[in-house]
Design a protein around this nucleic acid. Structure first.
Lengths: 188, 188
DNA sequence: GTCTATACGAAGATAGAC
DNA sequence: GTCTATCTTCGTATAGAC
């Protein structure tokens, strides 16, 4: 009885990892196979859409994972908690990878991969989740949305700078300045 | 007499363009040749270091261009001017490319290209330039640096989201929230 | 500086056997 | 579901002629 954790799932997870560490251009079927240990012969059985489908599933998986985290934290009604969860995730991934891994959604976006189509939806969902937390705190819808978008952009940008500089400083700077901004924005 | 605008320079410029539009993985010698119209035969005459050297020169060119812009604006002593120049540049590039072009430094960073080594230095120079403007305005060194880093991260992140969502909204949101933050930070 | 030819490897995708 | 060809295209790099 084939468990759920079969070759298909292992390949999607490996694709997400390669996306994060080496970008879309380097995420080839060959490398996913080597990384996941999945068998060559069944690639087009599991992914009839070939490489495109594989990348798209990896984007969806990563997008859902982060969205779930944001949405769960947003339900506490405290925007600071949601932001902290989001930032902590990147902090952990950067540390675990020694500053070589970033965001898979960013990877497909800057490479203009076929799956950029999905990237907009993922960022949109993250934005909606965070905006809901700001809204619950009493901010007007327009400001809540603007702030949510801004926080996500700032953190994503900081993660890239952390990789380039091989230092956590940019993410620390972003965390502090976001906090500073929220002190004023959330003042009731 | 071979002018300065010869095959070498055209290739570097084309490489930067391809980096911005299709990422590091898709910036191959073949594509640079096709895009620049430069002759095949002299590639390794102009670039003894091959593809690696070509990409590195493109990163350096783009990095210097933006740094020069920031540094010139910073000399006015008004941080808002420097930020406006920086944001306007991205706004124009996004519009001109119909949201398909981003930052070449980001491209080599997320692809973990050999030239990531240069990316940290480029971001560092941009940060120093903007921090100088904040310092001239009277902010303490630590805060000036933190704010400079944050602004660059936020704008770079917003540009990526603009590409994914094919909309200028994320950059508009970033511009407004950065302004909001500066209203408090630059209060004398 | 620029040309052609060539070697070599990696990658996506398909076909047909088991 | 998995295997082994196989085809084709693309990419880097070198050699040697002009």
């Amino acid at each position: 009885m084939p468990r759920k954790s079969d070759a298909h799932e292992r390949m999607v997870r490996s694709a997400a990892t390669l996306l994060r560490e080496h970008g879309a251009g380097a995420t080839s079927i060959d490398r996913v196979l080597a990384h996941s240990g999945a068998p060559r012969g069944s690639v087009y059985h599991h992914f009839p859409g070939g490489r495109t489908q594989l990348i798209e599933e990896a984007v969806a998986l990563a997008g859902d994972f982060v969205a779930g985290l944001i949405e769960a934290a947003a339900r506490t009604g405290d925007p600071s908690v949601a932001i902290d969860k989001f930032v902590s995730l990147w902090r952990k991934w950067l540390a675990d990878s020694d500053f070589t891994a970033g965001c898979p959604i960013v990877a497909v976006t800057v490479a203009n991969d076929d799956s950029v189509r999905l990237a907009g939806g993922v960022f949109g969902r993250w934005t909606d989740g965070l905006a809901a937390a700001f809204g619950a705190h009493g901010l007007p819808d327009a400001r809540a949305r603007r702030l949510a978008m801004f926080v996500i952009a700032a953190v994503e940008g900081a993660v890239i700078m952390c990789r380039a500089e091989r230092s956590i400083e940019p993410l620390d700077a972003a965390t502090e300045e976001i906090h500073e901004l929220l002190v004023h924005a959330l003042r009731t």
